[in-house]
Simulated assay, not measured.
Amino acid sequence: MHDYPNDLDDYVWPVCVTPGCRRQLWVSETGRRACRPCEDATSKRLADLPNLFRRLDTTASLMRGARRIGGGGGGSKNPPIPPRMEVLALVGPGGVAARLSAIEDSWRKALGWTVASWRGSPAQAVPEHARFLINNLPWAADAYESVGQDIDDLRKLHSKCKAIVDDERRPGRVQIGLCPARYDDSLCGQPLTASAASHRVRCLACGSRWETLGEWRQLRAAQEAVTEQHRQAGAAA
């Protein structure tokens, strides 16, 4: 059981330190820093990362959508340009292997262990780093002060790798007209865009927002009113 102070009004129940979780810990999790669901999810992500890395580190993944440079003929000998710089950023220096290595090194330092000297290529290192982190994750969830941030960083890294491997595309934005907001009798007129991923529209110039279906209708009505005013002004001229 948690050790309650005499004044229960001042007692703050322990919560998971992982950003975005903050779940109250169960009595059986007394003394832990991260909750068991966060630990379990992180273990699964770590186990998945080596396979995701292998799939990222392929010619097909790197060159998807590549184009050739040089002469326009089909026989150009110039190599294609890999357009997927986000893939190169993950499989190259400073990518997945380096990020896992940094977490492993910090854990080893906290444990008082020697920092691993063998690294090898990223393809060789990623499975080794993942194995070390999985094996020592229970300790980190219990006692490592910065485990919450590491869990969050691993979640983001896994999500980024999986999105690219699954070839997820960010929804494009479309032009939906000009901002009809007025300040001091002056029309804002900033081009507005909308995305299929969100029902919110925000003007980057004046900060006006339209978030609900009713507000979208108000936006459209205001835009049509501005258009009509311009039409009438043009006819009068």
Rank of each mutant, 00 (worst) to 15 (best):
S121R: 10
L90H: 00
I81M: 06
G92T: 04
G120I: 04
R55F: 04
R54I: 04
V91M: 02
A110L: 06
G65R: 07
A116M: 13
P79D: 08
T114Y: 04
S121H: 09
P93R: 01
L111P: 09
C38K: 00
W107T: 02
P93K: 01
R23Y: 05
S61L: 11
G75Q: 11
L52I: 06
E86G: 09
P93L: 05
F53I: 06
E104M: 12
A89H: 12
G73P: 01
P82R: 01
T58G: 08
L100G: 01
G20L: 08
P37K: 03
S106K: 12
G71E: 14
R64I: 09
L62F: 06
R33L: 14
R68D: 06
S106N: 15
N51D: 15
A102S: 14
W118S: 12
R33Q: 10
A66P: 03
L100P: 00
K44C: 10
L52C: 04
A34Q: 01
R32S: 02
L46M: 07
G73M: 06
T30K: 15
G73N: 10
A97D: 02
R119W: 12
V126H: 01
G75S: 13
R36D: 05
R99S: 06
A123S: 15
G65L: 08
S43G: 14
L62M: 14
D48I: 06
C35W: 00
G31K: 08
V96N: 00
T114I: 11
C21R: 03
V87W: 00
A47Q: 15
V96S: 00
S101G: 13
S101K: 05
R68V: 08
P82L: 03
G70F: 13
L46N: 02
T114G: 06
V91L: 04
G92N: 05
A98F: 10
G112W: 08
G73F: 10
G94S: 07
C35D: 02
S101E: 12
P80N: 08
D57G: 05
R45Y: 07
W26F: 13
V115Q: 14
I69E: 14
R54F: 05
L46P: 00
K77M: 09
P122S: 10
P79E: 11
S61N: 13
L62I: 13
D48P: 04
F53D: 01
D48A: 14
R36W: 06
I81P: 01
P37I: 05
H129R: 11
G65P: 09
P83A: 05
S43Q: 13
T42W: 00
F53L: 06
G75I: 08
G31F: 11
P83C: 07
L52G: 01
L25T: 03
L62W: 02
A116W: 09
T58Q: 11
S28W: 10
M85C: 07
L25D: 03
H129M: 10
R119I: 11
S61A: 15
R45I: 05
I69F: 13
G120Y: 07
A116S: 15
L111T: 10
L88P: 01
D40C: 07
G73I: 05
T58D: 10
T58A: 08
